[in-house]
Design a protein around this nucleic acid. Structure first.
Length: 759
DNA sequence: TAGTTTTAAGTTTTT
DNA sequence: CTTAAAACTA
């Protein structure tokens, strides 16, 4: 049957046997365990094309869900390239599918089709109105717990709620939050999954309709799915539905936000008759890189188990560098980059070094805060770089303000939006007035109407302020209801030509309003780009129709696809990126930095969390195609304080002959990890110390007479004498306060440090 | 009500 | 150290 003559390119013959088996498989549920770099996306896109082309499946009956918009776009693009008809398949993220579902069916659950989606910040604000005597930080914590409860598909009356939050009052807070959110008529991220499941359960006719619509359900990155998403799949998949999930349990790194590894580990049990296909051929990395990656993740106990085999064969052995501190780490990375770009590959042997581009390089770190050191050093050396993921366009104050104003104009019950912008710029509507208005309206009532009816009883200042605010909103409303024909003022907005959809509206409400004046003033003072950001927002709106529905759609797009992609992807620059953000990416050369206890792994208290950190190591190291470097520092500045650090536990898990070591291993690295943090140690010999010569020094050469010290309690001082005791060096120091103190460096950690002569 | 000073806290974060 | 929110004062 699949033998179509001539006309098609033989896309199946490009696949390896396992990939092909996964593509042509049908019947039972299928779990594809796809290791890093094993051609997962290729399999899933080819499968869509195959189903349409060879099996005569109607593309509109195929639902493929991913976790990121980027992945969804890439999948759509690649499937379409093989089979143009695949364009009609429903290819969405879980959340955008949920929103799509609720806009059509939400009325059955009392939800207006133009609902606005609240992000975590909005949920926190809403919760703040319910928990009056708590700080915002506490409200944020509770909001997070509620989000987790929804990830686990728990309602406020769920008996297991204590697993999420053991406080007895949590149940009531969660219930109150749900009640208020419902009255306002909006939803949060968790609702986009949870509400469709509930609706499908309560309305069998809707469920059956969907089961008739989608015959094939495909899920990408299944290891990142949460319990609620699993429930959604169960509702969507009837006995006739073909379900295929693709994932890698070793790449599950979002546990902290509800991802449930058990979903993939238990998939064969939950869906009886499941067939498992393993994709273990890695097309990305050389063998030595995979050896390092595997050696760490292999220590995990809870995994399905897979052995990646490189199709690229041998290559350069990964390098582990022991360095002094984060400054040394930054310059180490900078030098690696500079030398490779100049064509002087770092290695004396191994043939002619290939000349690298800046874009071949990625510097990986555990936390965003670590990027700063690299940025400073790269800036100084004029190495082009781009920081991925720190843009946070949607989190900017002016953007959030603009979105709040837009949200309020389609939903005057939106208390969160109202609170945010009613007195911005300051119009004389303070906390007292605001509370009066909110109290005057019924819970979840129309706040614009409440403001209007209360206005006569307010002070002149507050009345004028409310009036100005309402005028702005009403003009916006009129525009939306009147349709495109009634462009406010008839002027060409912000240089945009006519027929720009929603743009003129956004320009009027946001770029030309008093709110914009406020931000324009901020631009003057702080030299920021706020107005430019608002203009960008307005430009993006041109793609949506000038109606309430169009505005809701626009807001949904902003809320669900926050990765405002900067178009500088073609620039030749080093990538600075968190480990989490690298999933799905690949680079020729990768440096994983900060391999220290407390940094990475960040926390070694709980076994399950440690296993997740190991997976993060696996994800990071398998991004590298040709070269992999690991760095670890003897000391690290954190919150302005320098602390001694111990090399990461993961470094112990790599076989000695699997990695090339640069710099000196500290003694503690060889023995135990639970021991004392050693004082600034190993790098000093390698970097060359300029500390004073002569006089007694400790056996390890770190403590010299005359050396400078800093102690949290005693301040600055200098070393008077050093001798070897049974517990290591014994140092006597005279501090500036005149105090003379004797101590054992071994028992000192954060409170005490050497002051480098380079400092 | 609005601006200033003090104090507290600090992961990762596809949606 | 750096940032953001709470507390405080004009």
């Amino acid at each position: 049957m699949p033998e179509l003559p001539g006309s098609r390119s033989d896309y199946l013959s490009d696949l390896n046997p396992e990939q092909r088996a996964a593509v042509v498989h049908e019947g039972s549920p299928l779990l594809i365990l796809a290791g890093a770099g094993s051609g997962k996306t290729r399999v899933i896109t080819t499968k869509i094309a195959y189903l349409v082309r060879e099996r005569g499946v109607d593309p509109e009956s195929i639902l493929a869900v991913t976790f990121t918009n980027k992945a969804a776009r890439e999948m759509a693009e690649r499937a379409r390239r093989i089979e143009p008809r695949a364009e009609r398949a429903v290819l969405r993220t879980f959340h955008s599918f949920g929103a799509w579902f609720l806009r059509r069916n939400g009325h059955l659950a009392g939800l207006d089709s133009n609902f606005v989606i609240y992000d975590d910040d909005d949920s926190t604000t809403l919760l703040g109105t319910l928990m009056e005597e708590t700080t915002r930080a506490e409200a944020a914590r509770t909001a997070h717990r509620i989000a987790r409860a929804k990830d686990y598909f728990m309602t406020p009356d769920d008996p297991s709620l204590a697993i999420i939050d053991h406080r007895p009052e949590f149940r009531a807070i969660y219930a109150a939050y749900e009640e208020k959110l419902g009255r306002i008529g909006n939803v949060d991220f968790g609702d986009l999954i949870k509400k469709p499941v509930e609706l499908l359960r309560n309305h069998p006719e809707v469920r059956d309709r969907f089961r008739q619509r989608f015959h094939v359900v495909l899920v990408d990155e299944y290891q990142d799915s949460n319990v609620a998403q699993f429930e959604l799949l169960k509702e969507l998949c009837g006995p006739e539905t073909y379900l295929c999930v693709v994932g890698d349990d070793d790449q599950s790194i979002y546990r902290f936000r509800g991802a449930e590894v058990r979903n993939i580990l238990d998939f064969p049990d939950r869906f009886p008759g499941t067939e498992i296909i393993r994709l273990e051929k890695n097309y990305r990395s050389t063998e030595p890189i995979l050896a390092v990656a595997s050696s760490v993740v292999d220590r995990n106990l809870d995994r399905l188990g897979k052995t990646l085999v490189s199709t690229r064969g041998s290559g350069k052995k990964p390098t582990l560098a022991f360095l002094d501190d984060q400054d040394a780490e930054a310059s180490f990375c900078a030098e690696l980059v500079e030398r490779s770009v100049a064509g002087k590959g770092g290695e004396p042997k191994g043939g002619a070094p290939a000349k690298a581009a800046y874009s071949d390089w990625a510097i990986l770190y555990r936390t965003n805060a670590q990027s700063l050191g690299f940025e400073t050093e790269f800036l100084r050396r004029r190495i082009p770089y781009k920081v991925v993921g720190s843009l946070k366009f949607y989190e900017r104050e002016e953007v959030k303000d603009a979105l709040a104003l837009l949200s309020f104009s389609i939903n005057p019950r939106d208390e969160v939006a109202f609170r945010r912008v009613v007195n911005k710029p300051t119009r004389g509507v303070g906390a007292a007035t605001l509370e009066r208005i909110v109290d005057a309206s019924a819970p979840g009532g129309d706040l614009a109407a409440a403001s209007r009816s209360l206005a006569p009883s307010l002070s002149a200042k507050a009345r004028a302020g409310i009036g100005a605010f309402l005028k702005t909103v009403e003009e916006g409303s009129g525009f939306l209801d009147g349709g495109q024909a009634r462009t406010p003022g008839g002027k060409k907005a912000g240089g945009l030509a006519a027929g720009e959809g929603l743009s003129p509206f956004v320009v009027h409400l946001v770029v030309e309003s008093s709110l914009a004046d406020y931000h324009r003033a901020q631009d003057e003072i702080a030299g920021t780009q706020r107005i430019a950001n608002l203009q960008e927002l307005a430009n993006a709106a041109s793609l949506y129709p000038a109606s309430r529905e169009g505005l809701a759609e626009f807001l949904e797009h902003i809320e669900l696809d926050r990765a405002m992609e900067s178009a500088d992807a073609s620039d030749d620059a080093v990538t600075l990126i968190t480990l989490h953000n690298t999933k799905g990416l690949e680079f020729r050369r990768v440096v994983m930095t900060g391999l220290e206890q407390g940094v990475f792994p960040r926390d070694d208290k709980k076994d399950e969390e440690l296993e997740e950190e190991r997976r993060l190591f696996y994800v990071g190291s398998t991004r590298a195609m040709d070269e992999l470097y690991l760095t670890t520092c003897a000391a690290r500045r954190l919150y302005g304080r320098t602390q001694a650090s111990v090399p990461s536990l993961f470094l112990d898990e790599i076989a000695d002959d699997a990695i090339r070591v640069v710099g000196r291993k500290p003694p503690s690295y060889l023995s135990d990890h639970d021991g004392y943090a050693s004082p600034p140690a190993h790098g000093s010999a390698a970097t060359g110390s300029a500390s004073p010569r002569g006089g007694a020094a400790s056996a390890d050469g770190l403590w010299r007479v005359g050396g400078r010290l800093f102690h949290d309690d005693y301040g600055y001082g200098s070393i008077r004498s050093v001798r070897e005791g049974t517990e290591g060096p014994v140092v006597v120091a005279l501090f500036e306060t005149g105090r003379e103190v004797r101590f054992l460096p071994r028992f000192q950690s954060s409170a005490f440090m050497r002051v480098g002569s380079d400092a």
